[in-house]
């Protein structure tokens, strides 16, 4: 495509130009932290298979301040991913009841927050019961 005219230089710091771009970048960066967490999660699972002693040792290491801080970051990233993902549900998956569109809050609760809370409650309950 060849268009004439003056082309303004590419803006490398584009993501700092609008609050919406910053929010976008924070949302995208959650994937880096979630990927990191998933690897740690796999290590935890591998320790289960390695026997009780190895698992106890690994869990003891996880109680150190460094790992706890890392998990706080991972939790913030995972929660923010969930909030932004379910926040997009009304836009990405509109549900029509005849001529009327299901309102955004209801769509988010039915297809997002409701299942999320249920799944989280079951997972946590399983460990605490």
């Amino acid at each position: 495509m060849s268009q004439g005219g003056y082309r303004r230089p590419h803006r490398w710091a584009w993501w700092m130009e609008r609050p919406g771009y910053m929010r976008f970048m924070i949302r995208e960066l959650t994937s880096f932290f979630m990927a990191g967490y998933l690897v740690v999660f796999l290590v935890t699972l591998s320790k289960v298979g390695a026997g009780d002693a190895a698992f106890a040792e690994w869990v003891d290491a996880l109680s150190g301040p460094g790992w706890v801080a890392a998990h706080v970051v991972a939790l913030l990233a995972a929660v923010w991913h969930a909030v932004t993902f379910f926040g997009a549900v009304p836009q990405a998956m509109p549900i029509f009841l005849g001529e009327r569109r299901l309102s955004a809050p209801i769509a988010m609760i039915v297809m997002g927050y409701g299942p999320w809370l249920t799944v989280s409650a079951v997972v946590v309950w399983w460990i605490l019961r």
Partner: peptide, 20 residues
């Protein structure tokens, strides 16, 4: 990114359209 829908003066929501 979703900013297209933020600036749209006619509330077309192109970002939603593209995800659909």
């Amino acid at each position: 990114v979703g900013e297209c829908s933020v600036v749209c003066p006619k509330h077309v929501d192109p970002a939603g359209a593209i995800q659909q």
